Amino acid sequence: MGIGRFVYTPILPSMTQDLGMTKSAAGLLASANFAGYLTGALLAATPALRGARRRWLLLGVAVSAVTTGAMALPSSIVTLAALRFAGGMASAFVLIFASAVVLDRLSAVGRPDLAAVHFAGVGTGIAVSAVLVSAVVAWGGGWRALWLASGLVSLLALPAAAALIPDHIETGGAGPSPAAPGSRRLTAFAAAYGLFGFGYVITATFLVAIIRGSPAVRSLEALVWVVVGIAAVPSVALWTAIAEKIGIARAFALACATEAVGVAASVLWLAPAGVFLAAILLGGTIMGITALGLIGGRRLSTGDPRRTLAVMTAAFGLGQIIGPAFGGAVYDATGSFLAPSLTAAAALLTGAILVAGTARTSTF
Rank of each mutant, 00 (worst) to 15 (best):
T46D: 09
A149T: 13
L114A: 09
L348I: 06
D104S: 13
G317K: 12
A347R: 05
A163W: 13
G60N: 14
V217A: 07
A41T: 13
A179C: 01
S76Q: 09
I248L: 12
I211T: 04
S14I: 15
G213K: 00
L49S: 05
V61N: 02
M71G: 07
V137H: 08
G110V: 06
A216K: 08
R144N: 10
M287V: 06
F252I: 02
E170D: 12
S75V: 14
A32H: 01
V117H: 10
G2A: 08
S235V: 03
I11W: 02
V227W: 06
L158R: 02
H118T: 10
G296I: 03
L73R: 13
T343I: 13
G88A: 06
H168M: 09
P176M: 05
L80V: 05
R212L: 09
G194N: 07
I295F: 04
L80A: 11
T240S: 14
R306G: 00
A339D: 15
R84D: 05
G284C: 07
A25Q: 15
V7N: 00
A273D: 11
A315E: 02
Y193Q: 10
A138R: 12
R144Q: 12
A149Y: 08
L223Q: 14
A232W: 04
L300W: 00
E259T: 09
P176V: 06
L186R: 09
A86V: 12
T67N: 11
I211L: 09
F34C: 06
F189S: 11
A180H: 07
W239F: 01
R185N: 10
M287C: 04
K23C: 12
L342D: 07
G297S: 09
R185T: 14
S31G: 03
S341W: 01
A191M: 14
G20A: 05
G125V: 05
